[in-house]
C-alpha cells in the first residue's frame, strides 16, 4: 500500500548539510500497526512528513496505493492528503475558534462535501469517539485527552488510507496517553492502518511492527 524506495532527504542547516534520511526503503501493508522509534534527530519525523506528503524527498520514489506520488504538484498532493492521509499531532493542532464538531468537520468542509452529507458522518464520528456531549465546546474548554480524541476523529473523517500520529501521547499524562493510544488501536482493530512516531519504548512495544531509526536510516524492523 505504501512503498518507499531509496528515499533521501537533506536539509541545509547553517550552511551544513544534514542527512535527515539516507536511502530509506520501506513498505507498509494495509491494516498494519507500525511504530517508528528512535532518538530525536534520527529522521523519524521527516519520514512521517514524507509519508504524509507534507514534505518531498530529494531522491527516491514513493508509491501510495500503487500510484507514484513523488512527482505530483502541490495542489495534487493536497488533494491526495485530503483523501488518504489522517494526521494526529503531538500538540493536537485544533483551530481554537471552532467547536469540537466544527474541527472534526473541517476536512470534509475543505473537500467541499455537501452539508447534508456531512451531518450524518459527523454524528457518527462524535458518537464513535465519545464526544457527543462536547460537540459544541471549543478546544480551550476541552481536556487534553478530549482534544486528542477530536484530532483523531478529524483524522478519520475522510476515511483515510493511513493514520499518521506524531508523538500522539507526548503532551498527555500517562493515563490519558494510554486512553488515546487505546483509541488509535481501536482504529487499527477496525482495519485501519496506523503509523505512530514515538520515542517512548513502552508505547512502541504495543505495536505489532516496530521500526527503529538512527541517523536517518532504518536500523531495525521487528514484527510480532
Amino acid at each position: 500500500m505504501i512503498r518507499l524506495s531509496g528515499i533521501a532527504r537533506t536539509f541545509l542547516v547553517g550552511g551544513e548539510e544534514v542527512h535527515a534520511l539516507r536511502a530509506v526503503d520501506l513498505g507498509i501493508a494495509h491494516g498494519e500497526y507500525l511504530s517508528i522509534m528512535g532518538p530525536s534527530g534520527s529522521g523519524k519525523s521527516t519520514l512521517l512528513n514524507i509519508i504524509g506528503l507534507l514534505d518531498r524527498p530529494d531522491t527516491g520514489t514513493y508509491e501510495l496505493d500503487a500510484k507514484n506520488v513523488t512527482a505530483l504538484s502541490d495542489d495534487e498532493l493536497a488533494r491526495v492528503r485530503r483523501e488518504k492521509i489522517g494526521f494526529v499531532f503531538q500538540f493536537f493542532h485544533l483551530v481554537p475558534r471552532l467547536t469540537a464538531a466544527q474541527n472534526i468537520e473541517l476536512p470534509m468542509v475543505l473537500a467541499g462535501i455537501d452539508p447534508a452529507a456531512r451531518r450524518p458522518r459527523l454524528a457518527r464520528l462524535l458518537a464513535e469517539y465519545g464526544l457527543e456531549e462536547r460537540a459544541g465546546h471549543r478546544p480551550d474548554q476541552l481536556s487534553g485527552g478530549q482534544c486528542q480524541r477530536v484530532a483523531i476523529a478529524r483524522a478519520m473523517s475522510m476515511g483515510p488510507t493511513v493514520i499518521l500520529a506524531d508523538e500522539p501521547t507526548g503532551n498527555l499524562d500517562r493515563h490519558t496517553g494510554q486512553e488515546v493510544l487505546g483509541v488509535l488501536e481501536r482504529v487499527h482493530h477496525n482495519g485501519g492502518t496506523v503509523v505512530v512516531v514515538t520515542h517512548d519504548p513502552e508505547i512502541g512495544a504495543r505495536s505489532q511492527r516496530r521500526l527503529r531509526m538512527l541517523d536517518g536510516a532504518v536500523v531495525a524492523d521487528e514484527k510480532g
Binding site: L54, A78, R81, R82, E83, I85, H93, L106, L110
Partner: peptide, 16 residues
C-alpha cells in the same frame, strides 16, 4: 501560521 499549516495538512490547496 499553525492554523494555515494545519489546513494544508488537512488537504487545503494553496488556492483554497
Amino acid at each position: 501560521r499553525r492554523e494555515i499549516g494545519l489546513l494544508k495538512a488537512l488537504g487545503a490547496t494553496g488556492h483554497q
